[in-house]
Amino acid sequence: MATDAPLTEKSAERSAHPIAAIAVVAAIAAWAVPGLGHLLLRRWGRAAFLFLAVGGLALVGYGMRGEVFNTRSTDPFGELGFLADALSGAFYFLPRLLEAAGPDVSRAVGDYGTRFLAAAGVVNLLGVLDAYRIASGRKS
C-alpha cells in the first residue's frame, strides 16, 4: 500500500500534463485568432460570437481610423496601448490592409477608433482566459 501512493501521484501528474498542454494550446489559438480556442474545444456558439464581437470592434476601429500602437512607444500609455492592441491577435496585423490611409486621431471619431481597437484586444483576453479555463476543466 505504501508504494501505491507515489505511483498514483505519478500517474496523476502524467494525466495532468496533456490537459495543461491542451489548455496552453487553446489559449494560444484563442489569442492568435479570436474564437479559435473555443472552436478547438468544440464550443461553436461561443467561438462564432467571440469572433464576431472582437472582429466587429477591430474592423469598426480600423474604419474609424483609430491608432494602432507599436513596440516603439516611448511613453507608458503607448506601451499599454500596444499591449491592448496586440491582444487582439490576427486583427493586430491588419492595419496595412484595412487602414490604408493611416490613423487620424485629429478627429474625435479617430480617437474613438483607438478605443475600439484596444477594447477588441481586452475582449479577446477574456476569450483567451475562458478558453484556458474550459480546456483545463475549471469551467464547463
Binding site: 461561443r46 460570437f49 464581437a53 466587429g56 470592434l57 474609424m64 475582449v123
Partner: peptide, 17 residues
C-alpha cells in the same frame, strides 16, 4: 452610433462568455 456599436459588440462578448 459609435456608442451603440461598441455596446453591442461588448455585450455580445460578455453574454457568450
Amino acid at each position: 452610433a459609435a456608442m451603440v456599436t461598441f455596446a453591442l459588440c461588448v455585450s455580445v462578448a460578455f453574454a457568450c462568455l
